[in-house]
Computed example of a mutant assay.
Amino acid sequence: MYCGQACRQRAYEQRAATSKAGLPGDVVLVSRAELDGLQDRLYQLRCALEDVQTLLTEKPTKAELERSLSDLVHSTGRLDRLWVTERTA
């Protein structure tokens, strides 16, 4: 199901382009900079999760827990704004 005719058209164009290039339909191409940015953000999220996990094995103060959870939310929020968009040739 598509949100509208424009989305349906973009999906058709994507399928036609990948088919013409001999690529499987589920291939996604991203630039090195986009991939590096995604990997950086995922690393930040992983570190924030590890910090929370470590803190939970200790007896954290309320302030320590709030700071660690705030860092985690901040890391997640940056990923929340990531959208892969199609580029036209």
Rank of each mutant, 00 (worst) to 15 (best):
Ala48Pro: 06
Leu79Gly: 05
Thr54Glu: 12
Asp26Phe: 08
Val84Pro: 03
Gly77Asp: 01
Glu58Cys: 00
Glu50Leu: 11
Met1Lys: 13
Ala89Ser: 14
Gly77Trp: 04
Cys3His: 15
Arg67Gln: 08
Leu72Phe: 09
Leu82Gln: 09
Leu55Ser: 06
Gln53Asp: 10
Gln14Glu: 10
Thr88Tyr: 02
Ala16Lys: 11
Cys3Tyr: 14
Thr18Ser: 05
Arg81Tyr: 06
Thr88Leu: 06
Tyr43Met: 12
Thr85Cys: 09
Cys7Glu: 11
Asp26Ile: 07
Asp71Asn: 05
Leu42Glu: 13
Leu42Thr: 10
Thr18Gln: 10
Leu38Val: 06
Ser75Lys: 04
Glu13Gln: 13
Thr61Arg: 05
Gly37Ser: 11
Val27Ile: 10
Ala48Arg: 08
Cys7Lys: 07
Asp36Val: 04
Ser75Phe: 00
Glu13Cys: 10
Thr54His: 10
Arg41Val: 04
Glu50Ile: 00
Cys3Gln: 15
Asp26Val: 09
Glu86Leu: 03
Arg8Met: 13
Val30His: 04
Tyr12Thr: 11
Leu23His: 10
Thr76Arg: 12
Ala89Arg: 13
Asp71Trp: 01
Lys20Tyr: 06
Ser75Gln: 09
Lys62Ile: 06
Ser68Cys: 10
Leu38Asn: 00
Leu69Thr: 04
Lys59Met: 04
Ala6Glu: 15
Thr57Glu: 01
Gln9Phe: 14
Arg32Asp: 03
Asp40Thr: 07
Val73Tyr: 00
Trp83Glu: 09
Arg32Val: 05
Gly22His: 11
Ala11Ile: 13
Cys7Arg: 11
Arg41Tyr: 06
Tyr43Phe: 11
Tyr12Ser: 14
Gly77Leu: 04
Gln14Thr: 12
Asp36Thr: 03
Glu86Tyr: 01
Leu38Pro: 04
Met1Ala: 15
Asp36Asn: 09
Val30Met: 12
Leu35Val: 02
Thr88His: 04
Leu23Arg: 09
Asp40Glu: 12
Arg10Glu: 11
Gln9Asp: 15
Gly22Phe: 12
Ala48Tyr: 07
Val84Ser: 09
Thr76Pro: 01
Thr85Phe: 03
Ala11His: 14
Ala17His: 09
Glu66Lys: 03
Arg81Glu: 07
Leu23Trp: 11
Glu34Val: 01
Thr57Arg: 02
Gln5Lys: 14
Leu49His: 07
Leu49Thr: 01
Ser68Met: 05
Leu35Lys: 08
Gly22Met: 12
Cys7Ser: 12
Leu72Arg: 06
Val73Lys: 04
Leu29Phe: 08
Val73His: 01
His74Leu: 06
Thr54Met: 08
Val27Arg: 12
Ala21Pro: 07
Met1Thr: 14
Met1Gln: 15
Glu58Lys: 03
Leu42Trp: 08
Ala11Glu: 15
Gly25Ser: 14
Glu66Phe: 01
Cys3Thr: 15
Ala21Glu: 13
Gln39Ala: 10
Leu69Trp: 01
Glu66Val: 03
Ala16Phe: 11
Pro24Arg: 14
Glu64Pro: 00
Arg81Trp: 05
